[in-house]
Design a protein around this nucleic acid. Structure first.
Lengths: 91, 91
DNA sequence: CGCCTATTTAGAAATATTTCTAAACAGATG
DNA sequence: CATCTGTTTAGAAATATTTCTAAATAGGCG
């Protein structure tokens, strides 16, 4: 799977904010970019990092590219983290 | 809390390996360093990053510094991740 | 086809991270 | 106290990441 890429992707505040935005539904690259004070090219770079980490999926329609969350990788990350006792078991 | 630091800390493979080692019990800085092909100074740097992220705690004894996991921050990270549907609910 | 519109790619500059070597520090011990 | 052991800190070099501007691509539309 590649935890390195996943955690690196999650390490950036812009990328975490993109993920939070996508919780409320899919958005096009342009819509996402408009929420940040960054060029579209920079936001495109962040989207590519999130996609590489498989935290989001893209889906082309007309000449828009829509992005949406990919819940399964979040699950895998949580599973990995749970090995450190991060649930409400012990204590 | 500071998810930026936490995820950045988790993004490095050496640091993830340190965390996995600490699952089996506390270890001194020297013991940890001996498991890597890196100088002690470099491993010390990684330990400082993990400590800054509060993923580990230190505990001095004699002239050794022992490191151990801090489960509570793992919990917070999992909680944050769960907002993205990363548990076995929906579907 | 020729041209919009939405988005990405390339390449460069700025910034941050990782690693090393050398030096410093802190506590125990002879 | 002088020194040894375990570890960190400082500073520099190597590498990676983030951002920008400018150019390229891709698909739909008149």
């Amino acid at each position: 799977m590649g935890f390195a890429e996943t955690f690196k992707a999650l390490g950036d505040p812009v990328r975490r904010e993109i993920l939070v935005m996508l919780k409320f539904g899919k958005m096009s690259a342009g819509e996402i970019a408009s929420k940040f004070d960054l060029t579209q090219a920079s936001v495109s770079y962040h989207l590519s990092q999130l996609k590489k980490a498989e935290l989001i999926r893209e889906n082309k329609q007309k000449n828009f590219i829509y992005y949406e969350l990919n819940a399964s990788v979040f699950e895998e990350v949580m599973l990995w983290l749970s090995q450190f006792g991060g649930t409400q078991n012990e204590k």
